[in-house]
């Protein structure tokens, strides 16, 4: 089972979008998704050339998000197959990575809009495949069932053939999930990034490391 997800947006924000975009437009968007052909997000506005750089932003602040609750649960479950909890490092879903992916595929920029359809269609395929095989949706399947599906999708294409749509989806979703995860303080720590702290002096690499790589002669100018 997937963990309880952190809250996504508050009601006030949701109402703001409804007012801004118009309920009809949102509804039309959802219906289009139901037909497995996500509406292009290109008509929406980005954050512009002079946003506030200092305040903390949340997904959904600048453009409406896309996932249904079911898609969000499924995306979170897939995020956690890619980046599960390990020791004191939280899982991707606990860090809100599914909401970053939602923000990404909902954004109006060319490189993000290109991911919109593959992600929505990939999630729809994964959900249907899980129901067909296991009788339950992806998020509600057992860990072993989820793993079996992911292992299949992760497989390298047979020699000389193109990757399947399912395997391309997993690769792209994996990269998006990693992008969302490793840019959080917890993800950075897990990767081994120890910077972003003020120091009185900069000491360079540890002397033993320099010696080990045979670079001791290089530290003097």
């Amino acid at each position: 089972m997937t963990p309880e997800l952190p809250p996504r947006i508050d009601r006030r924000l949701a109402i703001k979008w409804m007012l801004a975009a118009g309920a009809g437009a949102l509804l039309a968007d959802r219906m289009a998704l139901g037909a497995a052909a996500p509406a292009p997000a290109a008509a929406r506005q980005g954050y512009g050339v002079d946003p506030d750089l200092v305040k903390a932003h949340k997904p959904g602040e600048y453009w409406p998000l896309t996932f249904t609750d079911a898609e969000r649960r499924e995306a979170a479950a897939l995020c956690d197959m890619i980046l599960p909890v390990e020791g004191d490092c939280p899982s991707a879903s606990a860090l809100g990575v599914q909401d970053f992916i939602d923000e990404w595929i909902s954004a109006p920029y060319p490189m993000t809009a290109a991911d919109r359809r593959p992600v929505i269609e990939g999630l729809a395929w994964l959900e249907a495949e899980s129901r067909r095989r296991f009788g339950s949706g992806f998020a509600d399947s057992s860990g072993a069932e989820r793993l079996a599906l992911c292992e299949e999708m992760a497989r390298a294409p047979a020699e000389g053939s193109e990757p399947s749509a399912a395997s391309s989806f997993l690769r792209r979703f994996r990269d998006l999930a990693c992008g969302g995860f490793y840019t959080t303080p917890a993800g950075m720590r897990d990767l081994g990034y120890v910077g972003n702290v003020p120091l009185a002096h900069f000491d360079g690499p540890p002397a033993e490391l320099v010696a080990k790589l045979g670079l001791a002669a290089e530290v003097r100018w």
């Binding site: 750089l53 200092v54 305040k55 932003h57 602040e61 809100g96 970053f100 923000e103 959080t184 950075m188």
Partner: peptide
């Protein structure tokens, strides 16, 4: 000192 998770699209 802001980390990318406080920015839109990381």
């Amino acid at each position: 000192f802001q980390t990318p998770d406080t920015a839109p699209l990381r």
